[in-house]
Amino acid sequence: MSIALFVPCYVDQLKPRVGLAALDLLRAAGFDVEVLDGLPCCGQPLLTAGEERLARDVATRFVEGTRAFESVVTPSGSCASTLEIHGRRLVPDPPGGRARVVELTRFLSDNGALPSPPTEFPRRVGLHASCHALRELRQGTPSETREQARTDPAAALLREIPGLELVDLTRRDECCGFGGVFAVEEEAVSTRMGLDRLSDHRRGRAEVLTSTDVSCLLHLEGLARREGPPLEVLHVAEILAETHLGAGWLETNAIRGADGSR
């Protein structure tokens, strides 16, 4: 199976270790992974801003540039959903077909043979459900629906980690209020939504906040650092790397200047 790793622009720039974690996990699971270079974006920021034509151009570049692969794996439910849900509408299949874009935990769950068993991670972890992973990609069962239950692959992988306690939330899948340009244009409501999510996690005594989406985490981390007791923020891939690839992975792969690695 030919696999590419797509590290979206904001992960590339602001949370590079998440990209390294995704790459190391895929390699450890035995996949020969090619890292996509020169295709930084799925087009989502343009699409949600209403710039559908610009988004189509960017998505077309992406689809063309990845058609040689069977699957493109990405540590972002949001970018995967853009390409899988809207990308298929905006960009027709190139001759010979296109790569399927798969969110990392979904891919690991479906195909993965992660080095097991995971080592201990004795922390209380709040898993923030990414709306796009949940309601677009249907990774899990949205609380609104009464569809047949589907397992959230991120939660399932975290549950396998000894010592890790997933925090119970009063609202298990409410939006954090990031929403791309929404976070800036509707700053007041976005902030309030994020603060409400944070207090839910804090009520559950979360020590670590995690998600399949860096975008939600950047927003929540930014709010958490301005207010309230410290909360460590890690992408699911980082927790999986730390527990499956040898304790100390996070420290070894810390990036100068980035959060949690001074």
Partner: peptide
């Protein structure tokens, strides 16, 4: 929101 610390290197 606080800005994230800016890493010295990209991924």
């Amino acid at each position: 929101r606080a800005l994230p610390s800016i890493p010295a290197e990209s991924f």
